[in-house]
Design a protein around this nucleic acid. Sequence first.
RNA 1: UCGGCGCAACAGGUAGUUGCCUGUAGUUUGACUACAGGAGGAAAGUCCGAGCUGCAUGCGGGAGAGGAUCCCACCUAACGGGUGGCCGGAGUAAUCCGAGGGCAAGUGCAACAGAGAGUAGACCGCCUGCUAAAAGGGGUCAGACCCGCAACGACAACGCUAAAGCAUUGUCAUUGAGGUCAGACCCCUUGGCAGGUAAGGGUGAAAGGGUGGUGUAAGAGACCACCGGUGCCUGUGGCAACACGGGCAGCCGGGUAAACCCGAUCCGCAGCAAGAAGCGCAUGGUAAAACUCCCGCAACCGCAUGGCGGUCAAAGCGCUUUGCUUGAGUCUAUUGGUGACAAUAGACCUAGAUAAAUAACUACCCAACGACAGAACUCGGCUUAUCGUUGCGCCUUCUGC
RNA 2: CUCCCCAUCGCUUAACCGGAUAAAGCAGGGCCCUCCUAAGGCCUAGCUCGAGGUUCGAGUCCUCGUGGGGAGG
Length: 128
Amino acid sequence: MRVEQKVENVWRSNIAKISSFVRIAEARYFSRIYKKAEKVRHTSAFVIFYLSGKEREVAFVAGKKVGKAVARNRAKRLLRAHFIEVAPKLKSGAYIFVAKAPLLEMSYPARRKLFVEALRKIAVIKES
RNA sequence: UCGGCGCAACAGGUAGUUGCCUGUAGUUUGACUACAGGAGGAAAGUCCGAGCUGCAUGCGGGAGAGGAUCCCACCUAACGGGUGGCCGGAGUAAUCCGAGGGCAAGUGCAACAGAGAGUAGACCGCCUGCUAAAAGGGGUCAGACCCGCAACGACAACGCUAAAGCAUUGUCAUUGAGGUCAGACCCCUUGGCAGGUAAGGGUGAAAGGGUGGUGUAAGAGACCACCGGUGCCUGUGGCAACACGGGCAGCCGGGUAAACCCGAUCCGCAGCAAGAAGCGCAUGGUAAAACUCCCGCAACCGCAUGGCGGUCAAAGCGCUUUGCUUGAGUCUAUUGGUGACAAUAGACCUAGAUAAAUAACUACCCAACGACAGAACUCGGCUUAUCGUUGCGCCUUCUGC
RNA sequence: CUCCCCAUCGCUUAACCGGAUAAAGCAGGGCCCUCCUAAGGCCUAGCUCGAGGUUCGAGUCCUCGUGGGGAGG
């Protein structure tokens, strides 16, 4: 219930909207998704956590291992850019993408292929 | 020209597709549309200085603790920053570098080596005196002995001669030089003892001014000349640091304060996770405070009232709003100044996010995938990281003409 | 974001007020001992986070950087 309330607040304040997905901003909500994630997909460049639900929520994370501030920002932007491409096809629920260091060294086709394949493996892309 | 030095600017661009943040306006108001704007020279490290905000009533002052700075003048809101100079060092030069007060206030430290390491010091050396019955060398003197030599004399023998005499041999005596032995005296060297001496050697990172002379037993600032340095007085130039001189003085008092410390100057402390407001939650009568202390004034409270004592009532948690971007602002021109910078005029508004916005992809340009790298309250600096491109000014050991 | 600490062989610690060839234990390598191993004995390699500065001399003092750690919602 508490989490739902937080989500309401986020909605009301009208911040951080990406392609009809709302950004996740609450630290406790993050750890909740990490623990209860229904599907977790590891790749060489990033990790995906997915928890199904009515709302459409997303977050992009880059830890200190990725690099300095510039590298972390770029990693999150790359993940966000790929996410926007496939966002309309995704099922509703909470997504968290955690970047890893090798992401920055990959070329665009390789990144895109890896991203789409990973989402398809956990079966969250609606077949249309 | 090669090479080098200094200063400044830029930090990929263009087009298309899909997207992000903020503001303004509009609409069918939890959204959408249009327009405008949207990281840096270091945004970094957090090393300094401020603004701003608070810190047990406020204002003012003082002391202590603690910290910082240290040639001079100027610039600046301020600074430990900058500019110009001084001094010292590097370089042919342009130019660059320097935490650059005080160890002739005190206390401490200097391993090893060395005689001695801070009121200096005698290891070698140099010099003086004493010692010697010690050792060696030299000189003088007189003596004893020795053997042969030389000279001269006496005697004897033999030979020659008429004789004087000559020659040879032997013995003795004298003299001379010589050798050996022990002795006396003197000198030198070595040794021992007592001193003198800091010129020289040697040790060390460092040995208590340097060079030459006088002087002395040998030496020494013991004395003298010149040079260096220190202190005091003083002249010229400079705002000053200081520079160039003159005179006097004692003879010279080494290094280390990024050792304790002393002196002068400056600083109250904490930080936007400061602080303020709203809504909600759940407690609570003791917890919470930002270096310590003193004085004065004012306000208020209490009391036993010309005085004495005192001064917080909330702190917390969750969310939202605010602080939050117009400011010691930026650009241009002119003037003043060697310069940092200042003044005047005009123009401009230039990110304010909050899991945190500038992106992804395609094509082309260029030698280049492009360097270092992402605002988080805001400024002024410093330091560190950095692929390159361009412009301006300057130097001349070297390369070429 | 702000404010503080720390750094010595592979690991855990020493090194006094600046004076060494930087020390010890464990771990490593070699040899001895043993039928073999363990234990034990002997020997051995390996370190002051990096760059400057102060000093005659720096692990120690100072500055800058690097890498760790902590506190504040």
